[in-house]
């Protein structure tokens, strides 16, 4: 017998209801898009968890490298002026 295949790996994102974000739910194996979508439906929405599903071939995802975390994410730490709490509101002024 030829080497076994368990088909390709896909990542599954589920939107729990309209208006919310698609969240990563897990993975499935499938050989094509339709199968990936159906498998995701059968595995991740058995308890009514979803109103929409995205499936993405796992090898199409580009991920940041943890070794780059310093240069990627640390420079944002000292930009306190991007947050509303940085600003002093005059006493008595109401929030918009």
């Amino acid at each position: 017998m030829a080497t076994d295949t368990q088909l390709d790996l896909w990542e599954v994102f589920i939107q729990s209801r309209n208006g919310s974000h698609h969240m990563h739910a897990g993975s499935v194996h499938a050989s094509d898009r339709k199968m990936a979508l159906q498998n995701a439906r059968d595995i991740y929405t058995r308890r009514g968890e979803g109103s929409s599903i995205w499936v993405v071939p796992a090898n199409s995802i580009v991920a940041s490298n943890p070794d780059d975390a310093d240069m990627f994410f640390d420079p944002a730490d000292d930009k306190v002026y991007r947050h509303p709490t940085f600003y002093v509101m005059p006493e008595g002024a109401k929030q918009i």
Binding site: Q6, S31, D32
Partner: peptide, 15 residues
């Protein structure tokens, strides 16, 4: 697993 091998192979071939 063995009974399903031809099914998985078919899915791959179709792809």
């Amino acid at each position: 697993h063995n009974d399903g091998a031809w099914v998985r192979a078919a899915a791959e071939a179709y792809k």
